[in-house]
Amino acid sequence: MTVGQGMAMVAKPWPIGGKGFPTFYRIIKSKSVGEFKVDPYLATVLNCTFWVIYGLPFVRPDSILVVTINGVGLVLELIYVCIFFFYAPNKGRKKVIYWLGGEIIFIAAVSLVILLVFHDHKRRILAFGIICDVFNIIMYSSPLTIMKKVITTKSVKYMPFYLSLANFLNGCVWTAYALIKFDIFILVSNGLGALSGAVQLILYGCYFRSTPRDEVIEPKASQIQLSVSDGPDGV
């Protein structure tokens, strides 16, 4: 995973779908995906889907906010994936098909097992909550690579301030929601997310002055959303 990819994945259950618009507008305009990567969006589809299932009445009743927000995010992510699929070369299209197919099988299998084995809300909440937290924590921890880079280079060039702020506010809002609803699973992952965002902001404050003036710029939306491939896992 590249630095750009890590920063691209704002954690769930807050939807990040709207943030992909500039990137895919550029793809549509150029009629090519270039070297952009679809990985963050495929990962977010998986995460959104599990949070939607978690908030459904047969798992956790009275969680309409979790369902609606992640439902909107899921729809937007799927639209972006479809746009990527339309403009991608054959290799990129095969990757999307394989990953989406694998995700559908994985989600269906896990959900079926949990629903058949556990017949009460308490144990279903526990099972789905753990799964959602795992994916949420992975997404919240993804900026660790960029934070390490900031410390080693003493530069915030690769850590956009507004994205770090969004991560922090996202974690705080969902932590507050979890405290009101007393939802331990939303609380744990988003509490860690708020802490991660706070650390990013502190690092930004510490290393902003040591960053060369010509480097203190906000990366283009395309650079934040989908990093240019620089590894063997590129499309």
Rank of each mutant, 00 (worst) to 15 (best):
K12L: 12
S189Q: 14
A43F: 14
A198L: 15
W51M: 01
I28A: 10
A88G: 05
A198E: 06
I79M: 00
G234Y: 11
N70V: 09
S189G: 08
L144T: 15
V150H: 08
I27G: 02
S155T: 13
Y177W: 08
Y41W: 09
V110Y: 13
I146N: 05
L163A: 07
A176K: 08
V59D: 07
Y158H: 11
L56F: 02
L56Y: 02
L116M: 12
I83Q: 01
E218D: 15
Y204W: 15
M7L: 15
V3P: 00
V117E: 05
Y207D: 01
Y41F: 10
K29W: 06
Q5C: 06
Y54N: 03
L192S: 01
V72K: 02
L226F: 10
E103H: 09
I79E: 00
G191N: 03
I217P: 06
I83C: 01
I97D: 05
F85R: 00
P15V: 10
S210D: 12
P15D: 06
S227Y: 09
G101A: 07
G71V: 07
F128R: 03
V96N: 02
P143N: 10
Q200T: 04
S141G: 15
P89G: 08
T153G: 10
G129Y: 09
T145Y: 11
L165C: 03
T145K: 08
S164Q: 02
I186Q: 07
V113Y: 15
C172M: 15
K181H: 08
F161L: 11
P219G: 07
H119P: 13
C48W: 02
L195C: 13
S32C: 11
G20C: 08
V228L: 11
I16R: 09
P15R: 07
L56H: 03
C206W: 15
C132W: 02
P22D: 05
N170Q: 11
S227H: 09
V10E: 04
T153L: 11
V66Y: 04
M7R: 01
W14A: 14
A109H: 02
L115W: 04
P57S: 08
L144H: 08
I114H: 09
C172N: 09
P22L: 03
I64G: 04
D39M: 09
L203G: 00
V75H: 00
W14I: 13
G6A: 03
G193H: 02
K95I: 02
V199E: 04
W99K: 12
K94W: 12
N136C: 14
G55Q: 05
I151T: 14
A108K: 02
G18K: 03
Q223I: 12
S142G: 06
V81T: 01
V173G: 07
W174A: 01
V38D: 00
I125R: 09
T68M: 11
A166N: 06
L144S: 15
I97N: 04
I79Q: 00
K220Y: 14
F86H: 14
Q223N: 10
K91Y: 10
I151C: 13
I146D: 07
P15W: 06
F58V: 06
D230M: 12
G234N: 12
R123F: 13
F106N: 07
Y54C: 01
V45G: 04
T49C: 08
F118D: 03
T153S: 14
E218W: 11
Q225G: 14
M9K: 01
